[in-house]
Design a protein around this nucleic acid. Structure first.
Lengths: 334, 334
DNA sequence: GTGAAAGCGCTAACAC
DNA sequence: GTGTTAGCGCTTTCAC
C-alpha cells in the first residue's frame, strides 16, 4: 500500500497511533514488553495504512536478509524443475525468499553466485550443479552456509543432503534379479559424475553378491537427443535388464528400442527420479523415487538452521529412496 | 571475500587506496570526474580486498533493488519451467535478480506477492498465473510495474506481452484443412481461460471462412491425468483433426487414443507450446511455437524499462507464433 | 512500558 | 577531482 505515491513508513504508523517508531517496531515484532492496549492501537494503525515493513531496510540493520540463493542447472529437466518448485514452496512456508539462478555455463554460475553474495543471502542451496566447486569456493570465501542437495563434494566443510544412491543401486539389482534378469546393463551419466557412479556401484556390487555382473556399461550425456544416440550401444549388446542413471536416459533408451527391437525385444528398464513422465502410459517406467518431498523439506530446514546461529557445523543427511514398480520391469513371458 | 570473518566494506577499500569512501563509490561506478590514476588505485585496492558492494545497502539508498519478482504457476509444466529458465537467463544478462514464487494456490500467491513488495522489487513479471487479478491489484496498489506474460487482463493499466493466439488458431486451421481434415475438434482448457478461448476463436473463425466448423469442443483441466480422462469425450466423436490448447492436452489425447483407436484411427493432432516432449519420437507432435526466446527477451526489456524511469506508460506487445510441423499431422493415406 | 538516538553500508548533493 | 555530510527505513541499545 501507499500514501501519496510513496510507501508507508513505520514513522507514519507511529504518528497515527500517537506513539514512537520504536514502539511500532516492537509491537509488530511481538515484543512482550508492549502493553496490550498500545499493541492494539499500533496494529490497527498499521492495518489502516496498509503498512508493510521495508525488508531491505530491516536487512541492513539486522544483517540478515531472509533471502536464500538457489542455484540450479537446467529447468528443462523436469526433475530439477520439480525440485525447485518444492524448494520454493518449502521456503515460502519458512518465510524465506528464493533468489534463483538457473543456468548451465560455468561463467554464468560464477557471475550469479557473486551476485547472490552481493545481495547478502543468508544461505545458498545448490541443486545438482555441474560447477559445484565454484559455488563451494565462493560460499567458503564469503562464509555463507551452503547446502548441497543431491550433490557430492570433495570433502569440504559444507552441508550436503542427498539420496542413498548406493542403496538404490542395490535395490534395483534385487528387483531386476527377482524379475528374472540375466544379462545386465548400466546406462550412466557422462564424465562419471559421482552420483551416477554410486548408483552403478551399488548396482554392480549387489549383482556380484548374487553371482551376476554388469555386462555392459555405457556412459552418455544427460541430454535426451544425445542419449538416444548412445542408447544403441546398449541395445547392440542385447541386455535383458538395464538400470539407467536417470529417467531421461531411460526414456531415450525406450524410444531408441521401440523401432529397432520392438516391444517384445525390449529389455526390462529401470530409471531414476520417478519424474512425472515415468507414470505416463507411453513409458510406464519403473523408477527410483528419491523422495524429493522429504529431501527438499530437510534441505530448507538445514539452510534455515545454518542461516540462524542455531547450527554452526555442516550437516550431512541421507534420505532413503524407494522403488516405484511399473510395467517396464514386468517379467517377459507372463 | 572477507576480512576477519566480516565482509569488506567500502571504507576499507578507501583506507587502502588512501582516499575517501565517496571516491571509491564513484570510481567503481565509473564516474567520469574521477582521475585515471585514482581510479586505478581504487580498482587495485578493491581487487586486493575482494570488495563486493553490499547491494542491500545500495538498494536502501538508491530506492532501487535490481530485484524483479517472478510469479509462475507450476514448474511441473515443462512449458512454464522453460519460460522461467529463459526469463532468469535474460534477467542475468541485464543484471537483474529474480525473486521467484511458484505455486498454484491463491493464498500462496497473495502471501508471495506481499513478500515481493516488502523486498521492494523493482518490477513484477507474472507468467500465466491463474490468480492474475490478485497480482494486478497488489502491483497497482504498490505502484510497481507489472508485466503480464502470456496472460490477458481486464483492461487494467499494466503491461502485457503475449503471443497472437488468434492468429495461431487461424494458422492451425489452415494447416489442418490443407492436410485434408474434415471433422474438426477443439480440446481446450477448463474455465475457458482467455488464452484458450482466443485460440479457439481464431481456429473456428478461420474454419468458418472455409465453410467448415468446429464439430466438437471439449474443455479439460490442464493436468495430464484429468485430461486423459476427458480425451475420451473427444475420441467418441471421431474427429479427424484436433487442435489442442496446449501440448499436455495433446499428449493426453494421443495417449488416450493409442490403446482405443490405434495408430491408424488416430486423428491429426496439433498442440500448443512446442515443448521439448513434442519432438520426441513417441509423440512427434505438430505444435505452435510461441517464440519464447523472443518473448522472454522482450518481457525482461520491458520490465527493465519500466523499473527505470525511461517508460511510464504500460506497454503492450504481441509476438508472432509459428507452426512446427511434425508427424502428428501427416496426411492419413500417404 | 515507552522514547531518543545511534547506526547498518552505501550514494549523492554540496562544498571546496 | 575529491572530501564531508546527510540520509535511505529499520531495529535496538540505553535511558527514564
Amino acid at each position: 500500500m501507499e500514501r501519496d505515491g510513496r510507501k508507508v513508513r513505520s514513522f507514519e504508523v507511529a504518528e497515527l497511533a500517537q506513539i514512537s517508531r520504536s514502539t511500532v517496531s516492537r509491537a509488530l515484532a511481538g515484543d512482550p514488553r508492549i502493553s496490550n492496549t498500545t499493541r492494539e492501537r499500533v496494529l490497527a494503525a498499521a492495518a489502516e495504512l496498509g503498512y508493510q515493513p521495508n525488508l531491505i531496510a530491516r536487512s541492513l540493520k539486522n544483517q540478515s536478509t531472509g533471502i536464500v540463493g538457489v542455484v540450479v542447472t537446467d529447468l528443462n529437466n523436469p526433475y530439477h524443475a520439480h525440485a525447485l518448485q518444492l524448494l520454493i514452496e518449502k521456503m515460502g512456508a519458512k518465510r524465506l525468499a528464493p533468489l534463483v539462478f538457473a543456468g548451465n555455463t560455468a561463467e554464468g554460475a560464477e557471475k550469479a553466485i557473486e551476485r547472490l553474495m552481493s545481495y547478502q543471502v543468508d544461505a545458498v542451496i545448490a541443486l545438482a550443479a555441474p560447477f559445484t566447486q565454484h559455488i563451494i569456493n565462493a560460499c567458503l570465501a564469503g562464509s555463507k552456509p551452503l547446502v548441497l542437495m543431491n550433490r557430492h563434494d570433495g570433502g569440504e566443510p559444507v552441508s550436503a543432503i542427498g539420496g542413498d544412491s548406493f542403496a538404490a543401486g542395490a535395490m534395483v539389482a534385487d528387483h531386476l534379479i527377482s524379475r528374472g534378469g540375466e544379462r545386465f546393463a548400466f546406462f550412466g551419466g557422462e564424465d562419471n559424475t559421482t552420483i551416477s557412479r554410486e548408483r552403478e556401484q551399488g548396482f554392480s556390487q549387489r549383482l556380484r553378491e548374487h553371482g551376476r555382473s554388469v555386462d555392459i556399461t555405457v556412459a552418455s550425456p544427460y541430454a535426451y537427443d544425445a542419449a538416444r544416440e548412445k542408447a544403441h550401444e546398449i541395445l547392440r549388446a542385447k541386455p535383458d535388464a538395464v538400470f539407467c542413471a536417470n529417467d531421461t536416459l531411460a526414456f531415450a533408451l525406450m524410444d531408441a528400442a521401440r523401432p529397432t527391437v520392438g516391444m517384445d525385444g525390449m529389455p526390462m528398464i529401470v530409471g531414476y527420479d520417478n519424474s512425472a513422465l515415468a507414470s505416463r502410459p507411453v513409458y510406464n517406467l519403473t523408477s527410483v523415487d528419491q523422495n524429493l518431498e522429504d529431501m527438499t523439506t530437510r534441505t530448507v530446514d538445514i539452510a534455515l538452521a545454518l542461516a540462524g546461529d542455531s547450527v554452526r557445523q555442516p550437516v550431512r543427511l541421507t534420505i532413503e529412496p524407494f522403488l516405484v514398480e511399473r510395467a517396464s520391469t514386468r517379467p517377459r513371458n507372463s
